[in-house]
């Protein structure tokens, strides 16, 4: 009897796991089916077109996402590595405890709240929406993950290397620059890519900062389109054509995000 109950429970847990997997496979299947059928060369080389022209693509959104995400990543990587180094160099000081708390507070901040704050700080003062504001909003979302993750990575530096460096008489700055950073090079690259995967799908911070644009815009000081924004706009529109484009965009986005996060699976749990 006990063994039977155990078996029943095992089958129950297995079936729940299979149920969730089926939903995922369902999502991916429909995404690929609808995405592939509307994916064509035009999708990459044309900007948005009005409804009825039976063409149009995501060129402006892809380029916009590229620019917005690269600027955001520049801000994130620069600030987070320094922030992570601070946590690593002064581990038990009051300031670093406060920094850790404020990072976990920022991590919990709703992304849309980051968006409207950047709207007030940047968009209001500049007078118009801009891709740069979108980057800053995305940076606000990405910084906490990367600060906490990079601190964990720095603390993995072998003590042996550190002691060897110090015994040569190197100053702390030099130890950090030549030993700690060098040792953490590849893990840092990995977590930057993971942070990129995380912010690439964020839509809420971009809604009122980058705002979206139907035309190709390469100047980050002007309103810019981004892939997730374009998906959102097309998804809630009433036109079948636009829906198809949204599916193709979603396929591109998810291919990018999933591939990145599955390749770097080993580092996934850092910074959470």
């Amino acid at each position: 009897m006990r063994v039977i109950i155990d078996k029943i429970f095992q089958i129950f847990t297995l079936s729940v796991a299979i149920f969730v997997s089926i939903i995922l496979i369902f999502i991916l299947f429909q995404l690929i089916k609808d995405g592939i059928s509307s994916l064509s060369l035009n999708f990459f080389i044309e900007s948005a077109r009005p409804v009825g022209s039976n063409s149009g693509g995501f060129k402006q959104a892809i380029l916009g996402s590229l620019i917005i995400d690269s600027i955001a990543m520049l801000i994130i990587v620069f600030l987070s590595i320094l922030g992570g180094l601070f946590l690593y160099v002064y581990p038990e000081t009051l300031l670093s405890k406060i920094l850790k708390e404020s990072m976990s507070l920022l991590q919990g901040t709703p992304t849309i709240v980051c968006g409207i704050c950047v709207y007030y700080i940047l968009v209001r003062s500049m007078g118009h929406f801009s891709g740069l504001a979108g980057s800053v909003a995305l940076a606000l979302v990405g910084i906490p993950y990367m600060v906490l993750a990079s601190e964990q990575i720095f603390s993995m530096t072998p003590t042996l290397l550190l002691e060897a460096a110090y015994s040569l008489g190197l100053s702390r700055t030099r130890v950090i620059l030549y030993v700690v950073l060098k040792f953490a090079k590849f893990p840092l690259l990995a977590i930057s890519l993971l942070t990129l995967a995380r912010i690439a799908g964020e839509t809420a911070p971009l809604l009122f900062t980058a705002f979206g644009n139907s035309f190709l815009e390469l100047n980050p000081l002007r309103p810019m389109a981004a892939i997730p924004l374009q998906i959102y706009v097309y998804a809630i529109s009433p036109y079948d054509e636009w829906h198809r484009l949204a599916w193709a965009g979603a396929l591109i986005l998810i291919a990018f995000v999933t591939v990145l996060s599955l390749i770097l699976g080993r580092y996934r749990r850092l910074g959470e």
């Binding site: 969730v20 995922l24 799908g201 839509t203 959102y232 998804a235 809630i236 998810i254 599955l262």
Partner: peptide, 25 residues
Amino acid sequence: AFFSTVIDALASIPSVVLGLWAIFY
């Protein structure tokens, strides 16, 4: 490993894509 990958993949789907899927399916 398979089911862990499923969970990871589910976690990495952007919410706008899930919303899109939900609107149509």
